[in-house]
Design a protein around this nucleic acid. Structure first.
Length: 504
RNA sequence: GCGCCGCUAGCUCAAUUGGCAGAGCAAGUGACUCUUAAUCACUAGGUUGUAGGUUCGAUUCCUACGCGGCGCACCA
């Protein structure tokens, strides 16, 4: 972004070196390099009996330190496996040593040479050839590092969270621990795919741009398609499309993708986030709960190494089975209120007594108020992995009526640390019932509830062809990763979290 | 949306009641052929987030705005 006028003196010096290199016929940006060993592999290769004549290696990476001593120079090369010291010497390099003096911290270089151990005890590559692979024209905001017994200690460095999120590339380049968070993320997501693949699930992709949005209660992002001259919504959930696939005979499907919700942002909400949804024909919500707890506890164990993890002074135990608490009974135990019979006024009184005063509550009624009671009296106490089951019908317009109680649905949500992690139910497959639920939602929408479902006639048509009984689950992957990677903010597990544009 | 805090050199941070804006690292020049937070000497580097105001004088006090962090509110 910086123009020529405002380029810093540090950058100017690097550009001068680039010009000097190119004047010598050395390209600042090479095409390829034949690396034979990573830093870690090279280090593992050396044995002390090899003395000064260790094996030859070609290593490549970014210069993480550079200590010139005149006619010799020590540096560290960083690559994804770690770092290795290189020893550059005029005697060993001849003319190429001129190039060394035009290197900067952060440059990508390739080094060919043999391994030896320095007097100070560090296994090092004695460079015989230096190849500049890519010049760094802008200094990375790195601190100085010192190798200690406990690892690498950094002095200074990149602390400003704004810079870390905006310039994630710099954050990653400078912080190995940030890179490891995202490696862990990838590892866990791969594991989830494998878990479902092994159980006969088919991974599918459904539309992100949708003419009608549904499958959750949330405000959408709206965009416009020029050729069709119509509004399109970014999906808030995958649900309705995945269930259309059950109608089509794909009996086990899952999708991992982004949902978009036009709502507030905080430590646990990013406007786009990763959702895993999976649906299984001929299963009900009990089957799906059992599958969910195996999946979640397995993901934690695969990611962390244990099923019990300490987070914020609390040990979360992911050993299945997780306790089940009934929505109605859980609330009654907490505050004595029976949602089956409670009036709006009684529910409002409970919300006021246990929660924070808010004018917004006054406008709630029915299902939304029941939800508010739950969030106020029960949700904050659900620290250990816990299933809440059997939600009131008005709260769950896509869930099948409970087989034992027409006021409830066969729905569960998994809570961990007081936050929702997963949501699933016995899927409503009676098109006439679904039509009535949509109509109820339409009434709520007309009454001003922006988050009520829209009426999706095509979805009803699909159900009319006959959808097998099925269970479905949605799991928020980012929140799962926050616990597995022990990160306090959702921004720390999303590579490029949403930010306002930089001030000019 | 509300409240609190922050924004000073490329990075991390100082600056007394309001009195010439500083340090470490990074950078440049020189010295140094086993250094590792290399060392030593010298040099350069700033519209103190932006726009106003108060004042002889503002990094400092006041107002507005921008961006960020935290909390609250909103939020399946």
């Amino acid at each position: 972004m910086s123009t020529v006028e405002e380029r810093s003196y540090v950058e100017a010096a690097r550009r001068d070196k680039r010009a000097a290199l190119e004047a010598r016929g050395v390209p600042a940006f090479a095409y390829r390099y034949e690396r034979t060993h990573t830093a870690a592999d090279a280090l593992a290769l050396y044995r002390d009996e090899m003395g000064d004549a260790g094996p030859r290696v070609r290593v490549a990476g970014r210069l993480g330190s550079l200590r010139s001593k005149g006619k010799t120079c020590f540096a560290h090369l960083e690559d994804p496996s770690g770092r290795i010291q290189i020893y550059l010497r005029q005697d060993g390099l001849g003319e190429e040593y001129e190039l060394v003096q035009l290197l900067d911290l952060d440059d990508h270089v390739g080094i060919e040479g043999s391994l030896f151990r320095t007097k100070a005890g560090e296994v090092t590559v004695r460079a015989e050839h230096v190849t500049l692979l890519a010049k760094s024209l802008r200094p990375l905001p790195r601190g100085k590092t010192q190798q200690t017994e406990g690892g690498v200690v950094t002095y200074g460095g990149l602390h400003d969270p704004e810079l870390r999120y905006r310039q994630r590339y710099a954050d990653l380049a400078v912080h190995a621990e940030v890179r490891s968070v995202f490696r862990l993320r990838s590892k866990v997501v791969s594991w989830l795919r494998r878990f479902l693949d092994e159980r006969g699930y088919l991974e599918v992709e459904t539309p992100v741009l949708q003419p009608l949005y549904g499958g959750a209660a949330a405000r959408p992002f709206v965009t416009h398609h020029n050729a069709l001259d119509m509004p399109l919504y970014l999906r808030i959930a995958d649900e309705l499309y995945l269930k259309r696939l059950l109608v089509g005979g794909l009996e086990r499907v899952y999708e991992i993708g982004h949902d978009f919700r036009n709502e507030g942002m905080d430590r646990t909400h990013n406007p786009e986030f990763t959702m895993l949804e999976f649906y299984q024909a001929y299963a009900d919500y009990s089957d799906m709960m059992a599958l969910t707890e195996v999946l979640v506890s397995g993901a934690v164990e695969h990611g962390v190494g244990t099923r019990a993890v300490e987070r914020g002074g609390v040990t979360l135990d992911f050993t299945a089975p997780f306790p089940r608490v009934s929505f109605i009974e859980g609330i009654r135990e907490r505050c004595g209120l029976d949602l089956r019979t409670a009036s709006d006024g009684e529910m409002l009184a409970v919300v006021r007594r246990f929660g924070v005063e808010s004018e917004a509550h006054e406008e709630l009624s029915g299902g939304r108020l029941q939800d508010e009671v739950f969030k106020t009296v029960l949700e904050p106490h659900l620290i250990q992995p816990t299933f809440v089951v059997d939600y009131p019908k008005p709260l769950s317009p896509l869930a099948k009526e409970h087989r034992d109680d027409p006021a409830l649905t066969e729905r569960f949500e998994l809570f961990v640390g007081g936050r929702e992690w997963a949501n699933g139910f016995s899927e409503l497959n009676d098109p006439d019932d679904q039509r009535r639920r949509f109509e109820d939602q339409r009434l709520q929408r007309d009454a001003g509830d922006e988050e009520a479902h829209t009426y999706d006639a095509d979805y009803i048509r699909a159900l009319e062809y006959g959808m097998p009984p099925a269970g479905g689950v949605g799991i928020g992957i980012d929140r799962l990763l926050m616990v597995i990677a022990d990160q306090p903010s959702i921004r720390d597990v999303i590579l490029f979290p949403a930010m306002r544009p930089e001030a000019q």
